[in-house]
Amino acid sequence: MAAIWVAFGTGKNFMYLDINAICYALGKDRSTALPMFHSFTGCDTTSAFFGKGKKSVWEAWNAYVEVTEAFNNLMNHPYMTVTVNCKEFQLLERFTVIIYNKKSNLDSVNEARRELFSQKNRTMENIPPTQEALLQHTLRAVYQAGIWATSDHCEQKPPTSEGFGWTLESATKTWRPVCSNLPVASQACSGLIKCGCKSAMCTCGGRCSCKKARWKCT
């Protein structure tokens, strides 16, 4: 194998990195998995998990090495169809839980969200995304990793990014990331607010939860 060196940094921090030595230290499986790991944890075209830099997600990888199988499968099968029920996504979902709580034994990000929010007083910004949001994020990561995985092809023919966590806005002809296909929380949860008026003609006062939300009394 030819020796590969990469010039990195500027000024006093400039250095040459021995890529062969790095790959040898990481091993074949991790070296192959790196592009998918990078796209999943945040790169130029995919978002990172809030407050989770590369150092912390690398530590999560060390704590949950089983996710390497998912990274490699997605690299070996570019643009693979990913669903919430496939093994690769389930491994990535568990990995996401570990990113936010290394001691958790949960497999579901939805359950981890509830636990961290209700029991550990985490803010909304510091809990995992919903499963649906994670799926859309994973699809974007798979698409980007697929481009990298086929970068040695003389003519790349990637599929349309529609359906890979992106959608084309018809009005502006620009691509927009799909954050989630679930209804907006403020709309979905509106049915949970109820004042319980007993009379046909509501005479609720200022304590009425419906009136506080500026909705018709239920």
Score class of each variant (00 low, 15 high):
187 Q>F: 15
160 T>Q: 11
151 S>M: 04
173 K>F: 08
211 K>S: 15
130 T>C: 09
123 T>Y: 02
164 F>M: 00
94 R>Q: 06
156 Q>M: 14
136 Q>N: 09
215 W>A: 09
153 H>D: 04
181 N>R: 04
128 P>K: 01
142 V>P: 08
101 N>F: 00
126 N>A: 05
113 R>G: 10
216 K>D: 08
162 E>Y: 03
165 G>F: 01
61 W>L: 03
193 I>W: 14
168 L>P: 07
190 S>K: 07
39 S>Y: 07
136 Q>P: 09
181 N>G: 10
176 R>A: 15
72 N>S: 10
14 F>Q: 06
71 F>H: 03
168 L>W: 05
128 P>T: 05
41 T>R: 00
193 I>L: 12
177 P>E: 10
11 G>D: 05
61 W>P: 13
50 F>T: 11
202 C>S: 14
96 T>K: 03
215 W>S: 15
117 F>Y: 05
121 N>L: 01
187 Q>G: 14
107 D>K: 05
129 P>L: 04
77 H>A: 09
18 D>T: 06
124 M>N: 07
47 S>Y: 10
175 W>M: 04
49 F>P: 14
159 P>A: 02
164 F>R: 00
113 R>S: 06
90 Q>C: 02
218 T>I: 03
157 K>I: 09
13 N>S: 15
180 S>D: 12
215 W>Q: 12
177 P>Y: 14
123 T>I: 02
214 R>Y: 15
72 N>E: 08
181 N>Q: 13
56 S>C: 08
166 W>N: 15
213 A>K: 15
212 K>Y: 10
70 A>L: 01
107 D>T: 05
20 N>Y: 01
156 Q>E: 12
161 S>K: 05
209 S>G: 11
11 G>E: 05
1 M>P: 15
195 C>M: 07
177 P>I: 12
58 W>K: 04
53 G>C: 05
